[in-house]
Amino acid sequence: MLGPGLLKGMAVTLKQFVESYTKKGSIFTIQYPEERREMPEAFRNFPILVYDEDPENPRCVSCDICAKECPPRCITIVRDRDPNGAGLKKPKVFDIDVSVCMSCGICEEVCPFDAIFMDKDFELSAYDRMESLNFHKEKLLRPNSYFHKIRPTDAARIDANLKAKQEKQAPTPPSGTTT
């Protein structure tokens, strides 16, 4: 079945073969653990919880909206309570199951308090698939500076929003309890 079409095709593969050595940018593969791609700012993989100053007081008020809206329902939140049993505006338990999370980013979108954001870290593999893939609050908490580092434009926009919101509110909002 040799014919001109076949030869033309072979010329194409030969050209590709030669170009892979001579032309810059014609090889798309990279040597992964040593070489890394620079991820675009929008890249999302897994949620983190952001706190401003004190990791004990994250922005999260445990309103449970992200847990309800999460399409695969991978978030578990239990509200913290003070010794008298009144609910506090912070989570006691905040677990996200990595093996269930599908990196859709809906939690970030629906969060009214700008507390949960998508991280870029994608190297989350672990040796067992039960406990080490269920991330607890301690593992999810990140300072705001970390968020600024991974997503500078978004972080700046959100900080400005938060500041505007604070100024709008009464000078000293009553801190603490809800029922």
């Binding site: 079945m1 014919g3 079409g5 095709g9 593969t13």
Partner: peptide, 12 residues
């Protein structure tokens, strides 16, 4: 297309 469209094997 140069690689494929007129390729005799593909046509056959």
């Amino acid at each position: 297309e140069r690689l494929l469209t007129e390729n005799e094997i593909l046509m056959g």
